[in-house]
């Protein structure tokens, strides 16, 4: 999901998707096999840090965080041999920039049956940028229950934080300038897996 202020619009949500291809001059920084390897590594890190991941609940942030969350859940199931609860957390109603845009369509919040009270919640998102999405997600979690702890897994950390927030599990640290765009494409939504680094079209 995107979070941005007016200075830093991230393009992956706000521009129409053109058949899964990015801007003309965008270059891939992660390809399909890289993404698979990265997710496997993050899954192992979660198991290691959570000492077996017994009370882990994965919550993906729509749209692409949900797909990443499901993929991570599959990897965790392979590693631990147990099914890991996975759901989605829509943060639209908790955004701090609601009044700066027309109202957005809402996405699905799906909390696994046993809830999140006393569990280790791992939030999953595609790109970590300003950190405002994660702030909104923490607020949303507050209204749903009281986890034992909350951690954050992201596929790409592109820097430029505007809040004191960091990720616990990072697929790839990608130093970027504010003039650049980072676009994550996933097979479930876009037909292929890749991360594209491009230049913002209209300054």
């Amino acid at each position: 999901m995107d979070t941005q202020d007016t200075q830093n619009p991230r393009q992956d949500q706000d521009t129409p998707r053109s058949g899964g291809s990015g801007p003309a001059d965008a270059r891939p920084v992660l390809e399909g096999p890289d993404i698979a390897r990265v997710l496997t590594r993050i899954a192992h890190e979660i198991v290691e840090r959570a000492k077996g991941a017994e009370d882990v609940v994965l919550l993906g942030i729509p749209t692409r965080g949900v797909f990443l969350g499901r993929r991570l859940a599959e990897k965790l199931a392979e590693i631990t041999g147990r099914t890991v609860p996975v759901g989605s957390l829509d943060i639209t109603m908790y955004r701090d920039d609601l009044r700066m845009h027309p109202p957005r369509a809402l996405a699905r919040t799906e909390i696994p049956g046993d809830g999140i009270d006393g569990r280790l919640v791992v939030l999953v998102d595609d790109v970590l940028f300003s950190g405002r999405t994660i702030r909104a997600a923490l607020d949303a979690l507050n209204d749903i229950g009281r986890p034992r702890a909350v951690q954050l897994a992201v596929l790409v950390d592109r820097g430029h934080r505007e809040l004191p927030i960091r990720a616990d599990y990072v697929g790839k640290n990608l130093p970027t300038s504010l003039r650049e765009t980072v676009k994550v494409l996933l097979a479930e939504e876009d037909g292929r897996d890749t991360v594209l680094l491009g230049v913002k079209q209209n300054p």
């Binding site: 908790y94 369509a105 809402l106 996405a107 699905r108 919040t109 209204d143 749903i144």
Partner: peptide, 23 residues
């Protein structure tokens, strides 16, 4: 249809322990 779809997500708030959104 947008209003109906939005209402479908709003309906889920009623199932939560805290039935409130800060919007």
């Amino acid at each position: 249809v947008l209003i109906l779809d939005t209402a479908e997500e709003m309906a889920r708030v009623a199932d939560r322990p805290i039935k409130k959104l800060p919007t």
